[in-house]
Simulated scan of single mutants.
Amino acid sequence: MSSEIVEIVERIPTVSEYQFLRASVGWHNHSATIVERSLQNSLYSVCAIDCDLVVGYGRVVGDGYLYFYLQDVMVLPDYQGRGIGYRITKKIHNYVLSIAQPGTFFGLMAAAGAASMYEKFGFQRRPDTMPGMFIWIGAS
């Protein structure tokens, strides 16, 4: 299970692969219909695959011109700490840089403890004078 064996490929996971990854990292899940529509509206997706098992995933959402958001970078717990999340992020980062125009915004919301990895790609923490904000609609 070394990270060198794990391949990073451009593809959207199946609904069940995505739901399994979310559950494995402790994130709440959504209905299969919502997940399928959400995944299909991604701008770019990559899966980390070991043999035939999807062990990680990440994607880009946004308008494809001015705004890009790194979303859903997740790796199965048994595969964490092997650089797979970094490799997923690198592939996505390179994709966005290849199409972004001057003045493009590329943002993310990092999971607890993950900010330092994203800083390696040039992402900066928002200052207190520019707080990030969010609403979970109907979430419990």
Results as ranks from 00 to 15, higher is better:
M1K: 14
M1L: 14
S2E: 15
E4F: 09
I5L: 15
E7F: 07
E7L: 09
I8V: 06
E10W: 00
I12P: 01
I12C: 04
P13M: 01
V15Q: 01
R22E: 03
V25R: 04
G26D: 06
N29F: 04
I34N: 01
E36I: 00
Q40H: 14
L43G: 03
S45D: 08
V46W: 06
I49K: 09
C51W: 10
C51Y: 13
D52I: 07
L53T: 11
V55S: 00
G56I: 03
G56D: 00
G56L: 02
Y57K: 00
Y57A: 00
G58Y: 12
R59A: 05
V61C: 05
V61A: 07
G62W: 12
Y65E: 06
Y65Q: 03
L66K: 09
L66R: 14
Q71T: 05
D72Q: 04
V73W: 09
V75T: 06
L76K: 09
Y79M: 13
Q80H: 01
G85W: 14
H93K: 04
V96Y: 04
L97Q: 14
S98C: 09
Q101D: 12
Q101A: 14
P102S: 07
P102I: 10
P102T: 11
T104E: 10
F105W: 12
F105H: 11
F106W: 12
G107F: 14
L108W: 09
A111G: 15
G113E: 07
A114G: 01
A115S: 13
S116A: 15
S116G: 12
S116C: 07
S116F: 09
E119S: 09
F123I: 11
Q124W: 08
R125P: 02
R125S: 11
R125K: 15
R125Y: 09
R126S: 13
T129E: 15
P131K: 02
P131D: 04
M133R: 03
F134R: 01
G138M: 05
